[in-house]
Amino acid sequence: MSDQESFEPHILGFLCNWCSYAGADLAGVSRFQYPTNLRVIRVMCSGRVDPALVLDALIWGIDGIVILGCHPGDCHYLTGNYYTERRMRTLQTVLDMIGVKPERLIVDWVSASEGERFANLIGDFTEKIVELGPLTDDLPPEELRTRLLAARDALSQQRMRWLVNREKELLEKGDVFGEQVDEAEFHEVKFEALAREYEKNRILHSISDQVLSVQEIAKTTAIPPREVLKNLIAMEQKGLVTVSRIDGVNPKYRRLGGGESL
């Protein structure tokens, strides 16, 4: 779809101060050349990067995001990068679920002495994103935006954040009863919950600035009408949505609390 020749992707990097930012500086000191597309935001630790913020970046149209931290075991704050890895892996699955190519997000480790590796990594990633094309190649712009907004809201939700950030603890140390949690089972539960939360937010976003019936919502969101209805009833009870008017036999819903966008 895209004009590959002239496509200059927007690439955003989150680099931790102690290793990867130093590695990026070393690439400079050693004059290793790489494509100009990258823009960097320095963070103290890769663990500072909130998946919700990464989704914000995509919402704003960034085509590829690279999060770099210290090698496992080298994080200046001991465990920050382990959280990063788990969070971003979850985020990649969410991206996949909503139809955004998960390869648009990478997490990797670059030490302070790996200037050349940094340059190569950015070179390769830029190339990869050029291949994938602009973010809007993944989905039509409006749909893309609504889905990303819904995903961001899902990952900002209290229970989801709890779940995502307990993962490391639960899988490494076991639950409160000291029982080891089965990894595969945990991921299944986690994604189920994320999918539900996403669905809910997807529905909410579909009626943020318009009034729609269950059927219409089902059509725009591609969620089965039964699920839509179940969600709407639950949300109505929580005061998140309301019936705006009734068209014949079809109640039309609208979101309460305003059409929040960004």
């Binding site: 963070v43 103290m44 630790c45 663990g47 500072r48 990067v49 909130d50 998946p51 913020l53 200046h76 704050y77 465990t79 920050g80 959280y83 969070r87 900002s156 209290q158 229970r159 954040r161 709890w162 995502v164 950030n165």
Partner: peptide, 20 residues
Amino acid sequence: KGCGTCGAACPQKAITMRHF
């Protein structure tokens, strides 16, 4: 030490990282 790992996790987004 200001890593911000807690801030990126807090379910309530109640944690502010100073300067970041």
